[in-house]
Design a protein around this nucleic acid. Structure first.
Lengths: 103, 103
DNA sequence: ACGGCTTGCTACATATTCCGTAGCAACAGG
DNA sequence: CCTGTTGCTACGGAATATGTAGCAAGCCGT
């Protein structure tokens, strides 16, 4: 497994971030963790992704220090991950507007 | 080509949006269009993605009314796309902080 | 009218990634 | 023990991405 981030040879953090978030299920998983911690299988059921992918994405997110595993409660966002999520929260509102515009 | 958005059977716009943005190169392409319009080959060179994918993503983004093609200048964000981008701009600053934290 | 250039876009074979199912080892409770 | 839950992995087939080549249409200069 390659460590280097795809398409981001520039070394610019924003590129690495866009690459990380631009992977199937990554954004969705972060989103599902927005409120309460979730178990591995919960994330599986909620997203509908295969365990292979859930595991891979969780590993990437953990390495990126956006997600951590608390044995007692499950996977949850780190402080850093929460900051990121907060940047994404306006998307929820905006997506409603977008849905109307594209309908 | 399937119209229905992957993994978003719920009908919730946020899921459709997260799915659309969570595809390889989508976020990156939107990002590259943040300032000036770009030509097809410019996007190819900037991102390093294959023309097949660039074309596919541009088609998706155009259908989502986030990107449009102006013959004179190239691909650019629509008004809607610009709104979305503005929600993402704080990512740029945050990514620097994130890079330091993960280093 | 011809060559040379750029435009958006496509074909096709290969490589990578993802999916779906099954199942593992560790642990907890009954 | 038996059963259930935990995180996680193996593996074969399906979907997606890559990399290279090239097409048709338009423009520009000669």
């Amino acid at each position: 497994m390659v460590k280097r981030v795809r398409g981001s040879t520039t070394g610019r953090p924003i590129m690495a971030l866009l690459d990380l978030l631009g992977r199937r299920w990554t954004l969705r998983i972060v989103w599902e963790l927005r409120e309460e911690p979730k178990r591995f299988r919960e994330l599986q059921d909620l997203t509908g992704a295969s365990p292979t992918i859930v595991n891979t994405r969780l590993a990437e997110l953990r390495e990126a220090k956006l997600v951590e595993l608390d044995d007692a409660t499950g996977y949850r966002l780190t402080a850093l991950g929460n900051e990121l999520l907060r940047l994404f929260l306006p998307l929820h509102v905006w997506s409603e507007k977008w849905a109307k515009a594209t309908a």
